[in-house]
Design a protein around this nucleic acid. Structure first.
Length: 425
DNA sequence: TCTGGGGTCCTAGGACCC
DNA sequence: TCTGGGGTCCTAGGACCC
């Protein structure tokens, strides 16, 4: 059996774990730049606030009533790590799926014993991390996602729901469930399915898998098999190195100045190079993109990107900065009000398995070794003394592109300076 | 005024080769 | 008049996820 374990309204639960005053209040956590609501407590959902609702579109009454917090990813990432440590106590096979969800594999349990085991798991997560969790048990991932959702909707399950592939209960559930609510079926696919007369999850399950593959894709065919109880979806292992690394941000306010884009691009490229080294990879190319604000119909729109190949795979910040600067120069146009830019590192390879050049000169090896030691020292200092203790170029004040995040809570678990203000009961 | 960020996989179609 | 077919590789874009 596969269990999908997730934290209820995860970001909100993290905030509540460290500030019990938030319990029972309508609480929301905002995206970067305090743009949209990305996590909602039960009470906030009850007020009719939709997932992804732009902050500035919320009615004033709700903004007065609700507690709306900037996102605090340092805190959420740390709580997530602790939650997965607890899961590892209950099964040797835990797959991290996202910051708030993991798949946990169980074998060799009697049905009754497994549900009791999952109840203990849930209580332990609550006690050790403060996070209320839901556990959906089923033979496949798609069904486990559904079972997990039932735990949120039906308090009677007490947080643990088990779904068999062929029970009457499963059939009744699928017959009532619109296809769009399945994991892996979103609006586009749901619309096409509807045109072919498939509206419920049960109708999809009954469809011919080969026909589904031809008319749609192998992805949807796998979902059909999963609904029937045959495991067909494998996950990319979250612990594997990423295949690409992206760092991007919207600006705090629009800007038409090349200097602003250069500074932001430099910042993003620096972060991306740090991530690259942390996962032990080298990049072979750097992509930079820029765009104006697509929501501002009154502004001329422009979006473009450019890739610069690196002379050899590398993780050296100055080399990546230089490539990013050239890429930006290739796409920057005067007279546009830019809203966002980003840096992507592409074509990543394992640093340990770097292809050595036959034409390599001793000087190249020395230069590379010097860069490796410099980057290691830089990462070490920034890790120990705080981000950007040592950096390339000058720091900037009052950037157009700096994030707005005026409502962030303390980084209770990862920052000593912010620990002292923890509130109690 | 104010609308997130970071990923993955799959497919179609073009370029190229024999 | 008559202009193949099959394979691979690469890329851009679509769709989806949290």
């Amino acid at each position: 059996m596969i269990a999908l374990v997730d934290g209820d309204s995860f970001y909100v639960s993290c905030e509540r774990a460290f500030d019990p005053h938030l319990e029972g209040l309508p609480v929301g956590v905002l995206s970067n730049n305090d743009g949209c609501v990305v996590a909602r407590s039960r009470e906030l959902k009850a007020l009719g606030v939709a997932m992804g609702a732009p902050l500035h579109q919320l009615p004033p009454a709700i903004r007065r009533q609700a507690v709306l917090l900037s996102s605090n990813y340092a805190l959420y990432g740390d709580v997530s790590r602790r939650m997965n440590q607890v899961l590892a106590e209950f099964s040797p096979a835990v797959e991290l799926y996202s910051i708030d969800e993991s798949f946990v594999h169980f074998s060799g349990f009697d049905p009754g014993a497994l549900e009791a085991h999952c109840q203990r798991l849930r209580e332990t997560v609550r006690r050790w991390t403060g996070i209320p969790a839901g556990v959906g048990l089923a033979p496949t991932r798609v069904l486990a996602k559904l079972a997990n959702r039932l735990t949120k909707r039906e308090p009677a399950y007490e947080g643990v729901c088990r779904l068999e592939a062929d029970s009457d209960a499963t059939r009744r559930l699928l017959e009532r469930l619109p296809v769009a609510e399945l994991w892996g079926v979103a609006r586009r696919t749901a619309e096409r399915l509807q045109l072919m007369g498939i509206e419920t999850a049960w109708q999809l399950r009954q469809a011919d898998p080969k026909w589904i593959r031809g008319a749609f894709s192998v992805v949807l065919e796998r979902i059909v098999w999963e609904l029937r109880g045959h495991p067909s979806i494998e996950l990319e292992n979250m612990l594997q190195p990423r295949q690409r690394i992206l760092v991007s941000r919207s600006f705090g306010r629009l800007s038409d100045a090349l200097a602003d884009l250069q500074a932001a691009t430099r910042q993003h490229a620096t972060r991306a190079a740090e991530k690259l080294r942390r996962q032990g990879s080298l990049a072979r190319a750097v992509l930079v993109f820029v765009r104006t604000n697509p929501h501002r119909l009154q502004d001329a729109q422009y979006a473009n990107s450019h890739v610069v190949a690196l002379p050899e795979p590398c993780n050296d910040t100055p080399t990546i900065l230089a490539a990013a600067r050239r890429a930006l120069a290739a796409i920057f146009l005067e007279g546009h009000r830019y809203q966002k830019c980003g840096v992507m590192l592409l074509d990543l390879v394992d640093a340990e398995r770097r292809q050595l050049s036959l034409l390599e000169e001793p000087a190249d090896a020395r230069r590379r070794d010097r860069s490796r030691r410099l980057m290691a020292a830089l990462d070490h200092l920034n890790r120990e003394m705080g981000r950007d203790t040592v950096r390339f170029g000058l720091p900037h004040q009052d950037n157009a592109w700096a994030l707005r995040c005026q409502r962030r809570t303390q980084r209770y678990t990862t920052c000593w300076k912010e620990l002292v203000t923890v509130k109690t009961g």
